[in-house]
Amino acid sequence: MAGELALVADILSIISLIIGIFFLSLGMIGLLRLPDVYNRLHATTKVGTLGAFGVLLSIILQEGATPMGIKALTVALFILLTSPISGHMIARAAYRMGVKCCEGTCMDEYAGKRRK
């Protein structure tokens, strides 16, 4: 019985690892293909979060409540907190540096409202 449970945990762990790596590689493709810094941030912040979650969930399933598993859980929490903040700071810094939006941008309600 214990052996079967370990097998199920192994299979689930491999599936979540594959999902995580799939989304991480999608994020990298998006970083290369999308036109400007703001659209590239869409790819890296969102896809990076779920990709890292997949890899960390795989570690948790393999390790269980061992020190390594608890560390993986902590890393997942910190990524959930910090990833959107870093994306927001990069976007704001880029806008203040004067990085233009790409061609095809249809509206910019932020223009002229920048704080001094």
């Binding site: 999308l34 036109p35 309600e109 409202k113």
Partner: peptide
């Protein structure tokens, strides 16, 4: 083909 219409909204 990447066909997007991005923009900044208030």
């Amino acid at each position: 083909t990447i066909n997007i219409k991005p923009g900044i909204i208030a």
